[in-house]
Design a protein around this nucleic acid. Sequence first.
RNA 1: GCUCCCAUCGUCUAGAGGCCCAGGACACAGCCCUCUCAAGGCUGGUACGGGGGUUCGAAUCCCCCUGGGAGCGCCA
Length: 472
Amino acid sequence: MTSPVTRFAPSPTGRLHLGNVRTALFNYLLARREGGRFLLRIEDSDRARGGEELLEALLVDLRWLGLDWDAGPGAEDERGPYRQSDRDALYAEAYARLERGGRAYPCFCSALELEVSRKTQLAAGQPPRYAGTCRDLDAEARAARIRDGRQPSLRFLVESGQTVSFNDLVRGPQAFVSDDLGDFVIRRADGAPMFFFCNALDDALMRVTHVLRGEDHLSNTPRQLLLLEALGMSVPAYGHLPLLLGREGRPLSKREDSASLHQMRQAGFLPAALLNYLLRLGHAGAPDGWVEPVDLPSAFHLDKVGRAPAHFDEAQLLHWQREAVNRLNAVALAAWIAPAVAELGPDRLATLAAVAGRNLNFPTEAPDWAGVLFGELPPVQPEATLAIQEAGPAFFAAALEAYDSEGPDLAKIAALVRTRTGCKGARLYMPLRAALTGLTHGPELAPLLRAMEPHLLRRRLAAQAGHAGETV
RNA sequence: GCUCCCAUCGUCUAGAGGCCCAGGACACAGCCCUCUCAAGGCUGGUACGGGGGUUCGAAUCCCCCUGGGAGCGCCA
């Protein structure tokens, strides 16, 4: 493979879902592993739908994930523009060529007529295809209709009796008969170009060599092949990825918001976690363990992409999230939890991150630990209450005394309490943990003690020692 | 309705006729370690959708069925 050019071509009509993102990732990895180019093209040919905000958000999410594009919005080059809404002149030229060559013709059929025709065919057990009504209109008939004020769409003429075949990058040899296609619209009556058309044309114009896309495009591929052939343009190699299934076993769609990249980002998932998860969905080339983002391209193998649809599984994503959190360095860890504890100063933030950061799955869990260290205890868990009660006030009186003489040194406090109460092991440490954090689990106790505000530490011990007037 | 695609543990998957009474990872359960959680180590259960062929031998090849999905738009 010599220097592949791949692309991701989203339409800014909603948030990206994980299926879209995986498609983007595979294209990105395919380009990166061979030192090729990865393009980003915005398919906004239906101007009405997308919004600038949506587009901007899409770019931000993509960058956040680390899928940087060599050319695209914000990185134009001579093969651009990279927004279809800016490419009308290019499309116009192609339409003209097709019409001149007799490969496309104006169609005056109304939406109603087409609808009736489709229903009739369906009812007769026929696949719904354009009947060819306007195919053989002569120049005079066309002129007459235009004089009537009718706006034609432009249809591509598909010759019957042809077999269109290609070798799918992931599915192998494919063959379709052109009779099943029917003449399809390439320009709407209002002048807007259709997806099949600009998508294929742009790929050719941008010299894209490999197109990895969702399986929903598989049976549309022959149309695009025919189109490019009629235009005399080179065709990319196509590979069709199985769809990603959601929790209900249904394909992911833009409506399934929980699986949107944006939401996952908002929830605090780390890019590297998402990347590690996505790399393994429907792809068997990855090793078992963690793959650093920079090593992702070499872990990707096109021939290891599967043909069966894969399910989105949150438990597995969570596993990679834990891995990712554990691999964050101190600075990154602090930056990751910062938004959730915005009121903390830099010093306290760093302390919190160092002490409890790696125990978190999401930043939303940080405020509770901030409370433990610097403020109010979160609600005390029943198991914690139990541990405190079992230890009894004398236990905490000893602990308080030890703290007052030794300071926040867990080893020394533990030693003293042990000699005084005879408690050891879990019966020694657990009550301390419970009283100081309100929880029976969490990060290592010793660093927790050192990081905790002294007056809070003292107050919590005192409260359990039964000293009057002192509360947790 | 028509055309096409897919089918191994709960999930991601290995498996391209004997190496598989099916391997790994995640999840789950138990044990070890440990102040707890996590990590780590060990152990365990759970899968070739069904039926026919072909073959000495099939998860692997063929056919049918079932189940799931996609496409058939003046949507992208």
